[in-house]
Design a protein around this nucleic acid. Structure first.
Length: 280
DNA sequence: GTTTAACCCTGCACGC
DNA sequence: TGCGTGCAGGGTTAAA
């Protein structure tokens, strides 16, 4: 799950669970459920800080979600590759790989489901949030007002890394992952292996605009759902941005702009998709 | 400083 | 049909 999907989830939670009070928290006893709350040796240390609190606000930092509670604690969530929140009722059966269930006093529940168990959640006091190591390194957010193109140009010039890697680096810019970094680079007309300190002002502006447009459009279309059982929203509905993808996952298929077959290369253990004609 | 490989998991598509 | 292999939206760490 990348920035657009986390942001769609944040907005859904803001509408649907803010104001609800947590009546009970159940952490399953499986090994994988314990992985989800891995920093708690005792499940009770996790649940006791949540039971009885009301969710007051939902914030996003990069790919992290912060659910603020009226106890002045916050539940910090990272979805990893396959984590998701699902709304349910006592009647709806729990999906496979449900690790944690939050039951609300007003009825209904919230499930944390994560087959590949790379997701994680923990509780921190609101004051501590700036010191938590997972959140400390999170770089500038593309939706933040302080993300301007001159700032971006300055940051790019400080580094000499391949564009694909630097866009995915959460310490450099937060929220982009494997899908959106490829889409952004295609839209900007830049190859994955261009070095960050070789971009002209014009290229930086193109890249800046591509990031903004891609992220905004993906949020508007409620994220990218690549295949069945991939990302779905809080209510189980798929997104639609997969229909807009220009290069990601399109290896061998004609470029939507120039018909040249899209290529893919392995770079740092991930696939990068690009059009050899449109990107340079 | 930057890049690579290995690792953490499960599920699925694919080739034999 | 069954089985092994590789790959998947993330991130950390150590080592080159």
């Amino acid at each position: 799950m990348e920035l657009p999907e986390v942001e769609v989830m944040r907005r859904d939670l803001e509408k649907d669970v803010v104001g609800r009070r947590i009546k009970a928290v159940e952490v399953k006893t499986t090994k994988n459920a314990m992985r989800a709350i891995r920093r708690y040796a005792k499940r009770k240390d996790f649940t006791s800080r949540l039971v009885g609190t009301k969710i007051s606000k939902v914030e996003r930092r990069g790919k992290y979600l912060l659910m603020h509670l009226d106890s002045s604690d916050a539940l910090v969530v990272h979805f990893g590759m396959s984590g998701q929140f699902q709304r349910g009722t006592g009647r709806t059966p729990l999906p496979p790989h449900t690790h944690v269930v939050f039951t609300f006093q007003q009825g209904g529940d919230l499930r944390f489901v994560d087959p590949r168990t790379f997701g994680e959640m923990f509780v921190a006091t609101a004051d501590e949030l700036g010191k938590v190591k997972e959140l400390q390194h999170i770089a500038i957010d593309p939706l933040d007002q302080v993300f301007t193109w001159p700032t971006f140009q300055y940051l790019l010039a400080q580094r000499a890394a391949k564009m694909k890697a630097i866009l995915m680096d959460q310490k450099f810019i937060s929220g982009l992952g494997n899908i959106y970094s490829d889409e952004v680079l295609f839209t900007a007309g830049l190859r994955y292996d261009r070095l960050s300190d070789t971009l002209s002002s014009q290229e930086v502006r193109r890249l800046y605009r591509a990031i903004q447009e891609t992220i905004q459009e993906a949020i508007k279309l409620r994220g990218t759902t690549l295949y069945d059982e991939a990302y779905v929203d809080l209510f189980g509905q798929p997104g639609e941005y997969q229909n807009e993808l220009k290069v990601y996952g399109r290896s061998g298929l004609p470029c939507r702009r120039c018909r040249t077959p899209v290529q893919s290369v392995k770079i740092s253990q991930r696939n990068a998709y690009f059009c050899p004609q449109c990107q340079s």
